[in-house]
């Protein structure tokens, strides 16, 4: 079994994009950042240290930022390569590079348990958090923990493959029925 840190090394573009997404949402929400590590060979493999967000909704955005950014970027990169490779068996080296990037980035789309912990403490235990936000935080936190448990059984890899390899084909199939 490959330890998580080596898996992260192989898929390091995803880790960098993951941390970059946290940083991006901190900037968009005006949250001060104290330190950023895009990649390291230790646990955690990357982090963004920032002040607690004033608004609970900002904390939610910062925590789930990688899910939004990594998925969109992974899909945009893998889509043009998945069609020739998986539909027409006609992939070039460039296509395989795109698929590698797409897979690595999608694999790290799930927020870490550390992200979930911060989000839970800020939102669930926050005094001025609206009820709707508390309610949607519960399944999100649950999903993040489920993803973390699943990553022990390569769920992150399966998820990455689903987004980078499977989703483009599903989208093409969907549009073929619409058009």
């Amino acid at each position: 079994m490959i330890p998580g840190v080596y898996m992260a090394l192989i898929t390091f573009p995803g880790v960098v994009v993951h941390e970059f997404a946290h940083q991006l949402f901190c900037r968009l929400c005006g949250v001060a950042i104290f330190d950023v590590k895009y990649f390291q060979m230790a646990d955690p493999v990357g982090y963004v240290e920032h002040e607690p967000a004033k608004k609970p909704a900002h904390q939610l955005l910062i925590s789930v930022g990688p899910f939004i950014v990594n998925n969109i970027l992974a899909l945009a990169l893998a889509f043009p390569a998945a069609i020739p490779v998986f539909m027409f068996n006609d992939g070039s080296l460039f296509d395989y590079l795109l698929l590698y990037l797409g897979l690595s980035i999608a694999m790290h789309a799930f927020p870490s348990t550390g992200d979930a912990k911060v989000m839970w403490n800020t939102i669930w235990h926050g005094e001025d958090t609206p009820l709707w936000l508390k309610i949607i935080t519960v399944p999100i936190t649950g999903l993040i923990y489920a993803g973390a448990i699943g990553s022990m059984f390569w769920l992150d890899l399966a998820y990455g493959m689903g987004v980078a390899f499977g989703l483009p084909i599903l989208i093409v199939k969907f549009f073929s029925q619409l058009m």
């Binding site: 539909m87 460039f94 093409v172 073929s176």
Partner: peptide
């Protein structure tokens, strides 16, 4: 990170440039 992002952006642009033709071919095949 900036150089990496620039590299990925170039790759992304090249990929997106090819996307319409591949998308059309995929949809037509299906």
């Amino acid at each position: 990170v900036i150089w990496g992002a620039l590299g990925v952006s170039v790759i992304l642009l090249l990929a997106l440039f090819r996307l319409p033709a591949y998308f059309r071919a995929g949809v037509d095949y299906m």
